[in-house]
Amino acid sequence: MTLIDRTHRAGGSPQASAPLLRVSDVRKSYATPQGPIPVLKGVDLTLAAGESLALLGESGSGKSTLLHLIGGLDDADSGEIMLDGVRVTGQPDAERAALRRERIGIVFQQFNLVPSLTVAGNIAFQARIAGRFDAAWQEELMERLGLAALRHRYPEQLSGGQQQRVSIGRALAIRPRLLIADEPTGNLDEATGDEVMGLALDLIARTGCGFLMVTHSTRLARRLDRQVTLASGVLAGA
């Protein structure tokens, strides 16, 4: 399935649909003994449902910070982030936890699997606590990700590529409205990274969710609908 096919299945031109994600003038700085260091200096961004966006930038440019703010893992100093009509910024912990649990799938560079759960247990975990567990969808995810034969294995018994596939499966198991990924192939070799990326994009298209990926790789970035670059705390090409 091509990028265009996926875009159409998700509801026509991304530009034409209402934005799934809207980031408005978001600012964030970190306190240090030497004083606050501004990381994001007024970022504006939109993402439509079914659209995929690559966030590029140098190390320390604030890519991951922006991703964490969008994912409700951290809070902005000012500005507003709206996801699916729900405000993400300025919410208490419980509200942000609910948002993450029910609407956002997160894929980390370090996989962040639960070492004491099996492959099947890890994939099912978020869906279960979100009350969205669907056995058939879980099976399909495992089949498509090539994990069916590994369902009873523990993370320590898997290779890096396999672990990242489990991580993608966990994120998609809730059928999220938005999938965010922070350097998902950063710990994998090129061939494995490509393979994992292909599988991920395929499944993302099946769910019709928005996809926001932080990456250093312009090659991988080109496989997504749009690419934006974060430099000196502001976006170029948004």
Binding site: G71, L73, D93, A94, A97, R101, L113, Q126, A130, R170
Partner: peptide
């Protein structure tokens, strides 16, 4: 600690 962080990341409320 890693597991607990992951749990929080995927939406488990702190309380």
């Amino acid at each position: 600690l890693g597991t607990l962080r992951t749990m929080r990341a995927v939406g488990v409320p702190l309380r």
